[in-house]
């Protein structure tokens, strides 16, 4: 069985995000890149599944930039190989552009089970996994906190709020998105890092996947970025907890009109 994992290189959480002069895009200058944190749970689940059932794990990434450094780091966590889709045609990509590229690559590799993080830490759109599943014609289960595979059948648990869990069973193929708590991602030990240097990592263009620029043309264009407005003056409520709580609710309801 081939297990795919879609991962995204996102700005490291310590990076300072700045807007380009002109406001048409975010600046990539000085940004440190790292695999999106939720994707780490996806990688771990794929590797654990492989360790339990056999098969191989293939990483997929799509970007206009070279993501091989971050993907190579992810290979140290146990996956066997990687496909990095890198093409200038993805410079202005939207979620559907990425999903189209990833779905093509996943199809080409013959995966029947795909994991990915529940969301990427940069765009936070929560769209790509569902789109990949749709394009492949597969079902998908999102925000999964527990996953079991028995032959071709899977059982996925997802929290639906209020302490209630939903249990979904089905058959492969499927796209699973990982929620925190699904597992504890392992550390990439130094010998694993060294070993990862020799693992196959293929860089593919859109043309290599049989796609044209039109196939991935974005339907959503982000035209203007602005920093959030400066925070206004704070109002500090004085008094004991009971009084200030009551006053806070009154102001939220009557002045801010948010309750």
């Amino acid at each position: 069985m081939k297990i795919g994992v879609c991962i995204k290189s996102t700005p490291d959480t310590s990076s300072r995000i700045q807007i380009n002069p002109g406001g048409d895009d975010l600046s990539e200058a000085g940004v440190k890149w790292a695999t999106s944190p939720y994707d780490m749970f996806a990688i771990e689940e794929a590797v654990q599944t492989k360790e339990a059932t056999g098969g191989e794990v293939i990483l997929f990434s799509a970007s206009h930039q070279d993501t091989s450094k971050e993907v190579r780091k992810a290979l140290a966590l146990g996956p066997d190989s990687a496909v990095c889709i890198q093409d200038d045609g993805l410079a202005k990509a939207d979620s559907l552009s990425f999903a189209t590229s990833l779905a093509k690559a996943i199809e080409a590799e013959g995966c029947t089970l795909v994991f990915t993080g529940k969301r990427a830490s940069d765009g936070n759109n929560i769209q790509v996994p569902a789109m990949v599943a749709e394009l492949l014609g597969w079902p998908h289960v999102s925000f999964v906190t527990d996953f079991e595979l028995d032959g071709e059948s899977f059982k996925a648990v997802r929290a639906v709020g209020g302490g209630v869990e939903e249990v979904i069973t089905g058959n492969l193929p499927v796209v699973i998105t990982a929620e925190r708590g699904l597992n504890s991602p392992r550390y990439a030990k130094l010998p694993m890092i060294v070993k990862a240097k020799k693992k196959p990592l293929a860089t593919k263009s859109l043309a290599d996947l049989g796609l044209t620029a039109d196939d991935v043309a974005p339907i959503v264009t982000l035209s203007n970025y602005e920093p959030p407005a400066e925070r206004g003056d704070c109002i500090i409520l004085e008094g004991d907890a009971a009084t200030t709580a009551k006053e806070l609710v009154r102001r939220l309801r009557e002045e801010a009109k948010v309750l």
Partner: peptide, 13 residues
């Protein structure tokens, strides 16, 4: 890059 990857692991720990 290998040192950088090792650094990332050490930092996480």
């Amino acid at each position: 890059d290998e040192h950088d990857a090792f650094r990332a692991m050490c930092r996480r720990f």
